[in-house]
Every structure is written in C-alpha cells, then in structure tokens.
Simulated scan of single mutants.
Amino acid sequence: MGTPLGDFIRAKRDSIQPESRGLPDRDRRRSPGLRRQDLATWAGVSVEYLTRIEQGRDRNPSPAVVKALADALRLSPSECNHLRYLAKITSEECSVHIRPVPPSRRVRPPVLRTLHLLEPGVAIVANRLGDVLAHTSGYRLVTSGTGLLDTAHPNLNRYLFTDPRARTFFADWDDIADEQIFDLWQAPTLESLEWLTAELTPVAGPEFTHRLKRHVVPRRGVLRLNHPAGHQLRLLRETLELPAEVQQLVVFLPADDQTTEAIDRLRRQSHGRLRSIS
C-alpha cells in the first residue's frame, strides 16, 4: 500500500522527461519519466531504499533524505514545502491509528464579526477540506443558482466532483479541482482527511482519487466564474490563515470593472444577509 509521500515522489519522477536532464531517450521504457536508478543516484540513496519509500514500505525517511530527494527532483519552493509536509503526515500515519472523524464546523464569534464587517463583499470562512463554514451575502450572490450552497453543509470538493453544474460554473474547472485536492493534504487533522476521502471516494469516482495521488501544486490564478445569470466574473482571492482554528478567511475581489458592475447588478436584484453555517 502506498503513502502520500511515495505517491508524490513517484508522480514527480514520472513527470520528468529524461532528455531534460541530459539523459538519452529510452524507446522501450515500461513507464514514463525518470528511472528509479537515475533519481536514486542523484539523491545519494540506494534504488532499494527509494523503492521502499515509493511503495510505502519505509514511512519515516530522515529530513536529510527528504531534502536530497527534493534537490534531485529540482522541486520548486512550494513543492519542497509539500514534500516535507507529506513526509510529516506519512510518519504520523505509522504511529497513530487513524479513525475517520468529521472536522469541527464551529466558527468563533470574533471571526464571524470580522466576516460581517466585510458585508456586502464576497467572502467566506472555510477549512482545507473545502467546507464552507460561513459566508457573506455577496458570496451567496455570486454562487446563486449554481447549487453550491443548496446543502446544509456545503463542501467545495463534494460540489466539484459530484454536481455537473460545477464544470460550467468554474470556467477553469481542472485548475480549481487541483487547488481543492491539493489543500486536502493540509486538512485540519489526518482523521478529518480520512473522513472526507472515505465519504467522497464512492461518489466522486476515479477522477477524485486520481487527482488526490497526483499532488499537483496549483497556480491559484484569477478565479473565473460563469454565473447562471449570464455574467462572467473574474475574482482575485486574498486569504487570511486562522491557524488556531485551522480555517481560512477568503476574500474575493473583482479583478476588473466588468466584474464589479456585474456584482452590482446582482446585488440590486437581490438582498441578503450574513449566513453562518454550523
């Protein structure tokens, strides 16, 4: 059985073209990318040890080995951080029994008051599982008619992978799916990550599990939305981390005048107030 750490290393190794590293093209290779032998040599570890890490039979590599693998794979700073995080949670999985437990949906009153100050802007409080825990009336406006907030406990991952309307609403659905999946790896707890993946895997299909193992570090560009009313919205995202709660306050700002005007038109057509979801 593999591990998040092993999956990430293998995915990065498979994504590297040998020619880009000055290695000859191998016409009869059984798999794409670098051979284990090449990566092991550059990282200064044995092929057998690298195989154990990738296959999940060694779940506690030293920080020096993790750094050597990062250097050999030529990871970006974001990818290095992700690799270190995966090494940490893979090690923790060895020492604790993971029992699926849903995360707390409580939002502290001061956070709700801060969210209220952002009215009538577009903002949410969420966690890295994709749970929308509280939102402004502006967020309800820009998601109206999409089905995203129609459930008692809205979750972006559940919406993305199970509601066909998501692929129309999010103009860059693939990029958003990669963003949400990537954030799952920094869930509030390993128990809550296990809870969500166990819940989603049967209904979200193989695309969900495939993306979960790819570990694509997202670009997080402008968020482009196709509102059902016919408006095309372009939003910038500013995120404030709330480490004590393992939550985030995300503010969505119009990226252009057309989006500002479109939101104003939506606001004139509907009046709302802050809604907290618990």
Rank of each mutant, 00 (worst) to 15 (best):
83 L>N: 06
115 L>Q: 08
88 K>Y: 11
111 V>Q: 09
114 T>I: 08
74 R>M: 10
74 R>W: 02
94 C>Q: 14
85 Y>E: 14
78 S>N: 14
106 R>G: 03
101 V>L: 10
117 L>R: 12
117 L>A: 13
110 P>D: 08
125 V>Y: 04
127 N>L: 05
112 L>Q: 13
68 A>K: 01
66 V>K: 03
79 E>M: 07
78 S>M: 10
91 S>I: 00
98 I>T: 13
120 P>M: 10
73 L>T: 06
90 T>Y: 02
126 A>F: 00
70 A>N: 05
69 L>H: 02
112 L>T: 06
99 R>T: 15
63 P>N: 08
101 V>A: 05
83 L>D: 04
63 P>Y: 05
80 C>R: 15
70 A>I: 02
78 S>P: 01
114 T>N: 11
86 L>D: 05
71 D>F: 00
118 L>Y: 08
94 C>T: 15
101 V>H: 05
105 R>N: 12
121 G>N: 11
71 D>Y: 02
124 I>D: 02
115 L>H: 09
83 L>Y: 04
63 P>R: 07
91 S>G: 13
128 R>W: 00
119 E>N: 08
115 L>V: 04
99 R>A: 12
69 L>F: 00
116 H>R: 14
84 R>H: 14
124 I>A: 06
65 V>H: 04
87 A>L: 08
127 N>M: 07
80 C>G: 06
110 P>F: 05
122 V>L: 08
95 S>W: 07
70 A>T: 03
82 H>K: 04
72 A>K: 01
74 R>Y: 01
80 C>H: 09
118 L>E: 08
77 P>A: 11
82 H>V: 06
113 R>N: 12
121 G>E: 09
86 L>H: 07
117 L>S: 12
68 A>T: 06
75 L>G: 10
88 K>G: 03
85 Y>G: 10
76 S>K: 09
126 A>W: 00
128 R>K: 14
115 L>S: 07
63 P>V: 06
96 V>A: 11
125 V>P: 03
117 L>H: 13
114 T>Y: 05
89 I>C: 05
113 R>M: 11
106 R>D: 13
72 A>P: 04
93 E>L: 13
67 K>Q: 15
120 P>T: 07
70 A>K: 02
97 H>N: 14
71 D>E: 15
90 T>S: 14
118 L>K: 08
75 L>S: 09
73 L>W: 01
76 S>M: 03
80 C>I: 09
73 L>P: 02
101 V>Y: 01
115 L>I: 05
119 E>P: 02
124 I>Y: 01
94 C>D: 15
75 L>P: 02
67 K>G: 04
118 L>P: 02
101 V>N: 08
116 H>A: 15
126 A>G: 06
128 R>A: 11
104 S>F: 04
72 A>I: 01
93 E>K: 10
90 T>K: 02
113 R>H: 12
63 P>W: 07
83 L>R: 04
106 R>E: 14
102 P>T: 12
102 P>Y: 04
91 S>Q: 13
75 L>C: 11
109 P>I: 08
66 V>S: 03
122 V>H: 03
117 L>P: 00
69 L>K: 02
101 V>C: 09
116 H>S: 15
91 S>H: 10
112 L>C: 12
